[in-house]
Design a protein around this nucleic acid. Structure first.
Length: 367
DNA sequence: AAATCCGACAACCGCATCGGA
DNA sequence: TTCCGATGCGGTTGTCGGATT
């Protein structure tokens, strides 16, 4: 091929591409386009998106058609706000897999990876920003696990009881749950500091390095005696329920048994919460609970529940030094089930208090 | 009432992976 | 084995509507 001919062909190709680019539509889809796409898929089925784009009369790329169908037009797409159950599931699965949105979406029927991703970015990361911590930091993961998730459980319980109150069908019982002491690495008497305990991760299940997951670095140090002793635990602090992202019944039902897989467990959140050792805990008034994941922020909640900076700073300044962060999922669960007063998120309390009092050096750095 | 800000969500882009020729 | 098109995935941007100033 001569250079001239090649140049000519290149010019033709270039102008052709420009022409195609000129013709291709972008931006929001119109009703007509939606109808065209739905009709075509009704006749020919999904897939072969480039062919679809060419043959359907749509001036869109195959990619665009696929995305529009999967994220918006597909009949089983569930619209509306994420339920507390779904939010809890997202938090749980993100702790397991990190930003594997499509994988997470597979466990939320009717929800798309895009929707879940947006939820994470707009809601969850917002909380992290307001706390001035990284969303993947241990402190924030503690906050999610120890505050947000229990409140979602509370919300589920409230919803459940409201439904029961309105005479709806009785809920099926939750599946039998093993006591934590029966779960390897979660025995109440063994506050093992080993990261992740004996969780049945498969080769692909661990969150990508640096991309989150609520896994904790190995922290061989036992809970600080200065904070684990009941005498030094600030009485003003409310009970802090903690549970591992690797919940016992997840282990029990297999490595990827999810909330959704458990079905009935979600339908009776009160029982579920009880099974997690969260019942009977003072989680605060219901509206407070609502505020955590809707109207207000996690920081608001921390501010409201931290019963006073003075108390907390006294705890910090009173010889406890630096409170431990969660020393590992198993250890943390152990701390809940075995009920030593040491609590994984004490540091968060202290840092929130420090922040309130203007000591930004105590805080984990801005983002 | 107008301007600005902000949150939510739809859509796009670049890259990776897969499968068939 | 290599190439190439199709598809999937995750990050990012654009747009819109409601809230706030």
């Amino acid at each position: 091929m001569s250079q001239r001919k090649g140049a000519a062909m290149a010019a033709v190709t270039s102008s052709k591409h420009e022409e195609e680019a000129m013709e291709l539509r972008r931006g929001p889809w119109t009703l007509e386009e939606d109808n065209l796409l739905m009709n075509y898929i009704a006749c020919h089925g999904e897939g072969r998106w480039n062919l679809l784009a060419r043959c359907s009369g749509l001036k869109r790329t195959g990619k665009s058609c696929r995305l529009r169908w999967l994220n918006y037009l597909k009949p089983d797409i569930k619209r509306g706000n994420l339920t507390p159950e779904e939010q809890l599931l997202i938090l749980e699965l993100h702790s397991k897999w990190g930003n594997r949105w499509s994988r997470i979406a597979q466990h939320l029927p009717g929800r798309t990876d895009n929707e879940i991703k947006n939820y994470w970015r707009t809601r969850v990361q917002k909380q992290a920003r307001q706390l001035r911590v990284d969303a993947n930091s241990a402190v924030f993961r503690d906050a999610v696990r120890c505050y947000w998730m229990p409140r979602l459980l509370e919300k589920m319980a409230a919803t459940s009881s409201a439904q029961a109150h309105h005479g709806e069908l009785p809920l099926p019982p939750p599946p039998p749950l093993l006591p934590s002491s029966h779960i390897p690495g979660m025995a109440a008497s063994s506050p093992s500091p080993v990261h992740g305990g004996s969780q049945p991760h498969d080769a692909t299940s661990s969150a990508p390095a640096g991309s989150g997951g609520y896994g904790y670095p190995v922290d061989p140090s036992p809970p600080s005696t200065s904070t684990s002793g009941s005498a030094s635990t600030p009485a003003a602090l409310p009970p802090v329920p903690c549970f591992s992202s690797e919940l016992s019944w997840v282990d029990q039902y297999g490595p990827y048994a999810s909330y959704a897989d458990l079905g009935g467990a979600f339908d009776d959140p009160a029982a579920l919460a009880g099974s997690l050792g969260l019942d009977g805990l003072d989680l605060g008034p219901a509206d407070d609970c609502d505020a955590v994941y809707s109207d207000s922020t996690l920081l608001d909640y921390l501010n409201s529940t931290c019963a006073g900076g003075g108390t907390m700073m006294a705890a910090v300044g009173g010889g406890s030094g630096h409170a431990n962060s969660c020393g590992g999922g198993a250890a943390m669960v152990g701390s809940v089930y075995a009920s030593p007063p040491w609590r994984a998120t004490d540091e968060l309390y202290y840092q929130a208090a420090a922040w309130k009092l203007g000591d930004h050096h105590q805080w984990g750095g801005g983002i």
